Amino acid sequence: MNKLYIGNLSSTVRAADIQQLFGERKLSIGQVLLKSGYAFVDCPDDNAAIKVIETLSGKVELHGKVIEVDYSVPKKHRSRKIQIRNIPPHLQWEVLDGLLAQHGIVENVEQVNTDSETAVVNVTYETKENAKTAIEKLNGHQFESYALRISYIPDEEALQLRCSDLGEERGGRSGREPGQSAGPAPSHKQLDVPLRILVPTQFVGAIIGKEGLTIKNVTQQTQSK
């Protein structure tokens, strides 16, 4: 969840300008990938990412244009999980729960610890359609003088399912006839070309796992590299 998208950039902006902007505001930043009119930056953790969004998005000009900052979640990876920021600190949770329930069944609400005086929560809806509706209806919703800010966030569970599907697709190309039971492939039927799966940057940390434990288990169990 630590990869951010920076949009509405002037054509004159350079990577060094973005790094300087972050440095002036004492915001943690990693690698900067600059494209035409937008860029991607890496943040060290969730708290740093939230601070960058709240500090810069819609509030700061760079080379004459007000920049937009949000989580980098491609459309095809947008799922049931969203993040709601700028929640009034004194708001009763029953009120927020009632508001969220207006747009679908909520499976989970988790508060995120931040340095901000306002609250931040991650919400998981039952369906992607519910999450999409909530973003469309609630983004900018006013609670007193506070306007809610809502974004999609990466769904690690959805990624795992996608990787599982890719594994099944690979198994389907193993040469078995329809209806034939799965079993060890004959030793002479090996893939000449290895299967390569490209993983979006924002999911790399989840796949590596704490101290590399997840990726070690994957490589041991699957013989992959």
Rank of each mutant, 00 (worst) to 15 (best):
E169C: 05
E169F: 06
R170T: 00
G171E: 15
G171H: 09
G171N: 13
G171F: 06
G172L: 06
R173M: 14
S174H: 03
S174A: 14
S174N: 10
S174P: 00
S174M: 07
G175T: 06
G175H: 06
G175P: 07
G175S: 08
E177F: 13
P178G: 08
P178S: 08
G179I: 08
Q180A: 14
Q180M: 12
Q180E: 15
Q180P: 00
S181H: 08
S181Q: 08
A182S: 14
A182K: 10
G183C: 01
P184Y: 09
P184K: 12
P184M: 11
A185E: 13
A185D: 12
A185S: 15
A185I: 12
P186T: 01
P186L: 06
S187R: 12
S187A: 14
S187E: 14
H188Y: 13
H188L: 13
H188F: 11
K189M: 13
K189F: 09
K189N: 13
Q190T: 11
Q190G: 11
Q190V: 12
L191V: 06
L191I: 03
D192R: 02
D192T: 07
D192M: 02
V193L: 00
V193Y: 01
P194F: 02
L195G: 00
L195I: 06
L195D: 06
L195K: 02
R196V: 10
I197P: 04
L198V: 12
L198E: 14
L198I: 10
V199W: 01
V199I: 15
V199Q: 02
P200T: 08
P200H: 07
Q202W: 00
Q202M: 06
F203K: 00
V204D: 01
V204S: 03
V204G: 00
G205R: 07
I207D: 01
I207M: 08
I207P: 00
I208E: 08
I208L: 09
I208F: 07
G209C: 07
K210L: 08
K210F: 09
K210M: 06
E211S: 15
E211T: 11
E211F: 01
E211W: 05
E211G: 04
E211Q: 13
G212I: 05
G212Y: 01
L213Q: 13
L213Y: 11
T214W: 01
T214I: 06
T214P: 02
T214G: 01
I215K: 00
K216F: 10
K216Y: 10
K216R: 15
K216N: 15
K216W: 06
N217K: 13
N217W: 07
V218E: 03
V218T: 05
T219V: 15
T219L: 11
T219R: 14
T219W: 01
T219K: 14
